[in-house]
Design a binder for these strands. Sequence first.
DNA 1: CTGAAAGCGCTTACAG
DNA 2: CTGAAAGCGCTTACAG
Lengths: 326, 326
Amino acid sequence: MTLITRKAMKKLTIRDIAALAGVGKSTVSRVLNNDPNVKIETQAKIRKIIKEVGYKPSAVARAMNNQPIQSIGIIVTRLSSSAENQALSEIIDFFHQHEYEVLVLESRYDGELLNTHIELMVQKQVEGIIFFGFTDQGEINKDLFNGNIVMIAVEQSGISSVTTNSPLAIQHCFDHLKENNAKRIAFLGVHVNDIQTGKLRLDAYKKSCIINKIEPIIHLTDMQYIDGIKGCKALLEAGADAIICGTERLTAGALVHLLREGKSDLPVAAIGINDYIRILNPKIFAADLQYAKVGKEAAILLFHKMKGNNQNSDTVVQPLMTNLIV
Amino acid sequence: MTLITRKAMKKLTIRDIAALAGVGKSTVSRVLNNDPNVKIETQAKIRKIIKEVGYKPSAVARAMNNQPIQSIGIIVTRLSSSAENQALSEIIDFFHQHEYEVLVLESRYDGELLNTHIELMVQKQVEGIIFFGFTDQGEINKDLFNGNIVMIAVEQSGISSVTTNSPLAIQHCFDHLKENNAKRIAFLGVHVNDIQTGKLRLDAYKKSCIINKIEPIIHLTDMQYIDGIKGCKALLEAGADAIICGTERLTAGALVHLLREGKSDLPVAAIGINDYIRILNPKIFAADLQYAKVGKEAAILLFHKMKGNNQNSDTVVQPLMTNLIV
DNA sequence: CTGAAAGCGCTTACAG
DNA sequence: CTGAAAGCGCTTACAG
């Protein structure tokens, strides 16, 4: 069939198929919906015609009759975040397999934008949403989407969330360095006004210091590679003989500094791991936050909520480094 | 309004609003569609009620009357590609602002998967699609979506595309190194079975060699950081005194090797730039492929096609490529 | 096993 | 300026 005729062709409807098959619209509809109460020969005839003419029922018309266009929304903070796009990839894949449409938006760490996006998704009538939380996001209305909301990375009472257990990751890092006889284990992290990435991790480090009776050596800074470089320098000057890095970027920055200074043998333990970090120091000890798994868990959790399979609000699952609060 | 009442509440329709306002459905519909032929007081009254009760017209019902649910599809190869997620971010932003829904899928360099995705989008009746091409993607049916297709990174006759001018980028890199008195300018690239990233860039390098009467020193390898490290080592052994790196990962790998060897003063020029590369060598010369701009251009191009402003299907847009000396 | 009819929530010519 | 009516492409009780 050429382009010309395709363009000229009117869109086929269920009425056309019915006429072609010499049956009523209802019967075609039944075949479309796999209703078994249709004579087998009639089914065959209708399916044959549908295939021949390439008829596709209108999703919109079906939606008019409460066969909703199945869709969910995802709001990431930044697509450029490797943690987030790993998780996103899993979420998209999961819902695609379950024949859901997936709407993706970026909040850019902007609470107002987040709310605008959520409103849009309400209006689009998505069945549920998953979003990456951040420190200043503000309170989320947990009744939206019939409660079909899953947050990633932050927690709010009454809303299910999937978080990574970064305090435990810090503890593992600390223990590892200690076992390798480090005496002056330092911490390179981001400022505590960031709750998840900053405060929680710093607190975990301090706790390990107390338990192990080691004097804390702390440098808190911003999020960029350059901050990791400068921070590492500062910690070396403060006499650190091992460093725990609180984020992937800080880790990379620190490792670059050590490379430059020819001190790559200084023990480093890191929260989060990627190929970039591996190549800077193949021997690094890292606690993998497993964001792909986080995404997968979030998807499954939302799916079960939407299907009503999960009424329990207090389940706590904890696969490896991942901490789930359902 | 409490959760209980919300749940109990039936969904409001245009009929409810009409009753509440004491007018006909048609009049409410006109107000909804900003028809000016409605008495101003009537408009005000209706709008007030709509706001008070929080009525939102059903997008699905509107879609039944040829006010299509405006949507487009995007197929990236990998969300984890920084080039692609930069472009994606711009595309989503653009269409979001124009009130389009955006469906995102990953092809994972799999031609079959790409086709499945395209079929799904046909079925979803998106108005157009943008996708990132790759070497083995196979032929694309250019008549789909009424021809509203924009490809990124590869070209096919009859389909609009946005590509980066990487041969020109190579040339700039070469010229820069030459001006800085490099004599043995080597090329570190990926295998030529990858047309865009491999063959085109290698050919451009060879051409520059001929023009400048410089003997080629070539190392072709795979895509990972480790390949960049090994490749750089090989080129140094072959006597290179300057290196052009064909991809971001190879650049990063090469720079890590130079750092390890204490040879960071060796001149390197790169195709593509990111913070990671900058931190490894702040003095690097890089030709920025500007993927954010690529995304923006692709979005604009598709939008114009869908609006019928652009009848030419062979348009190839190449965003300006600015050179960065960081 | 099958068809005619009503209905989903809108839009838009048509007639006033 | 406004309303009654027809229609968009389906689904699904209802009646055979």
